[in-house]
Amino acid sequence: MDAPEEPQIYLITPPEIELARFPAVLASVLDAHPVACVRLALSTRDEDRLSRAADALREVTHARDVALVISDHTLLAERLGLDGVHLGDAARSVR
């Protein structure tokens, strides 16, 4: 019989991050603690800002074998090479 799965840590970014500092802070957290997933949850809808943040965080998370998902941006997830999407409105926005 397989052992039951253990709870895992799921981190959510703050709504605003400073790209000059946040990736290093995230890296130190990921190096210190076992984390299963990081959700990019910025308050902006600006695709350029989201793309730059996703690129920076993807390098940090994937180097540590941690999944990176984005909130509500189904099309961006695939284009940016992310691991998935967190749908805040359930699946109503996906056709």
Rank of each mutant, 00 (worst) to 15 (best):
V35G: 11
Y10P: 08
H33N: 08
E16T: 00
S43R: 11
I9F: 04
A36D: 07
Q8F: 03
L30V: 08
S28W: 12
D48A: 06
P15M: 10
F22D: 03
E47W: 01
E47K: 01
P23L: 10
Y10W: 06
S43K: 13
L50W: 03
I9R: 08
L42G: 03
T44A: 04
L50T: 02
R49T: 09
R49Q: 14
E47C: 01
P23Y: 10
E16Y: 00
R52D: 04
T44W: 06
R39W: 10
A41R: 15
S51C: 01
I17Q: 00
A24T: 12
R45E: 07
F22G: 03
L40W: 00
T13C: 07
E16R: 01
R39D: 10
P34D: 15
L19A: 05
S28F: 12
A53Y: 02
A24L: 10
T13S: 10
I9H: 03
H33I: 12
L42D: 04
V35P: 10
V25E: 15
R45C: 05
E18H: 02
E16F: 01
V35F: 12
H33Q: 11
Y10L: 07
A36F: 09
D46L: 11
P34T: 14
P23G: 09
F22K: 02
E16P: 00
L40T: 00
T44I: 05
V25D: 15
L11K: 06
F22H: 05
A41V: 13
R21E: 13
L11A: 04
H33W: 11
P34I: 11
A20H: 09
R39Q: 15
V25I: 14
R52P: 02
A20L: 11
Q8V: 04
L40V: 01
T44C: 03
S43C: 07
T13E: 05
V25G: 09
H33M: 10
I9C: 06
R45H: 08
Q8P: 00
L30E: 09
A41P: 13
L26C: 07
V29N: 11
I9S: 06
T13V: 07
L40G: 01
L11T: 09
L50M: 06
L11Q: 06
V38E: 15
L30W: 12
A27T: 03
R49L: 13
T13G: 08
P15H: 09
P23N: 09
A36M: 05
V29W: 15
P15Y: 10
A53E: 05
P14D: 13
V29P: 06
A41I: 09
L19I: 02
D31N: 15
F22Q: 02
A32L: 11
P14G: 14
I17S: 00
L40Y: 00
H33F: 13
T44P: 06
A20E: 12
A24E: 14
S51K: 01
V38P: 13
T44N: 04
R49Y: 05
S28V: 12
P23E: 06
Y10Q: 07
A24P: 11
E16I: 01
P34C: 14
R45Q: 12
A27P: 08
L42Y: 04
S43G: 14
A24N: 14
H33E: 10
I9G: 03
I12N: 05
C37S: 11
L11V: 09
E16S: 01
H33V: 14
S51D: 00
F22W: 05
T44E: 03
